[in-house]
Design a protein around this nucleic acid. Structure first.
Lengths: 207, 207
DNA sequence: ATTTTTACCATACAAATGTATGGTAATTTG
DNA sequence: CAAATTACCATACATTTGTATGGTAAAAAT
């Protein structure tokens, strides 16, 4: 009975975690077998039994997709951060992640939403700080007072959104900055999405 | 073909959402049937077909637990807030929630973790503000520099945790406050849990 | 008054799923 | 070197799961 897990077992564990993140479903034995090119599920079964014996997972017997993660050190899983926002800088959403942020294993992203890392202190008046992760949902219609991520003339802004018959206003939290007012038809304004939340991982933050 | 969903269908939809939140697994037809005291799964099947037809869910045919939520308006799910933390006040975790907060479906909580609402400005030096929700996990061992929720002599504190051979130190973010140092055996110190995250809902916040 | 919809039931069935048993070969441990 | 562990395979089997078909009764719509 070796102390740790084997490399193959670790790979399978990673797969379980990834599956759980990406497809929000723990995989079945057959899916694991397919991914690792095993000819049958019995092999997977044995690996899972080993992982359970070593305390990395818990299994609900006979239950479809009944794999539960029990581990703590694998608790944080890297998620891609698609870009950065900082006042005045253009917002670029790269196809490849510029960075990864450690989100709790359980934290699931809403469909099509993405993460942006906040850089600098430009949003401190909105109580959003350097390093915070904002969750941006491009699928919901911005309503008044929503924080939105918008690209305006090649600059990215995170501001409060207001409609005012015929025009759109982008308000800053800092009263020193006057609201930006543009016509609704103005082509160089693109509302990327609505900031639906701010998440800050606490465990490894060094101040 | 009625426009909306029926009351029963709404109940089933809620159950699917809850299941997905609580147990992290979308339910099977059998589990739904068991919960609603249906004698067989065919009844559930019909309801799910109706829900799919109306666009509330999507189903991966033949796939175990293949229910996917497609809705956006159910994006926020009420979660119980078990108590409040404010410097100097005793921390009471009530069996009944003192409040509910709308957490995004994505911001999931690890097993046994709970939410506390932050009251007051005592944590502003840690960039946590009045009204923020902290996610507390009672199941993980606090490591150095972790934020922990602790009860010390009937007062609740949220501070950084440090071990120092034989003693435990609780540091404040504000350097004006000296660290609290207690022996590890000190009985009136109880570390309730580790703060693993901060969530702030942006959508409905009125400033 | 007739039709449609809603909400259930029973039964049946193929595929998916978890599990068990027994076996082989390579590697690691004692 | 012998024994144990690891990493796979094949086959088999009972449940679970999703799905289909056909039926009943009440409510709602036409």
């Amino acid at each position: 009975m070796s102390r740790g897990i084997t490399k193959i077992q670790e790979k399978i564990l990673d797969f379980i975690i990834e599956k759980r993140i990406g497809a929000w479903l723990p995989p079945t034995l057959a899916e694991i077998a397919r991914y690792f090119d095993y000819k049958n599920r019995a092999t997977v079964q044995q690996h899972l039994q080993a992982l359970e014996k070593k305390g990395y997972i818990k299994r609900n017997p006979k239950l479809a997709r009944g794999i539960e993660l029990t581990i703590n050190d694998k608790f944080f899983v890297p998620r891609p951060v698609l870009g950065e926002v900082a006042a005045g800088n253009p917002l670029t959403i790269y196809p490849d992640a510029i960075d990864t942020v450690e989100l709790p294993t359980i934290a699931r992203m809403p469909k099509d939403s993405f993460l942006l890392k906040v850089k600098g202190d430009s949003l401190k008046d909105a109580y959003i700080f350097n390093g915070d992760i904002i969750i941006v949902n491009p699928n919901i219609e911005p309503k008044d007072a929503h924080f939105v991520v918008a690209v305006l003339d090649d600059s990215a802004v995170v501001k409060r959104f207001y409609r005012n018959n015929g025009s759109i206003e982008l308000h800053s939290e800092n009263p020193d900055y006057k609201p930006i007012v543009v016509r609704r038809s103005y082509e160089n304004l693109k509302v990327v999405g609505v900031v639906i939340g701010v998440y800050r991982s606490m465990e490894r933050k060094a101040v």
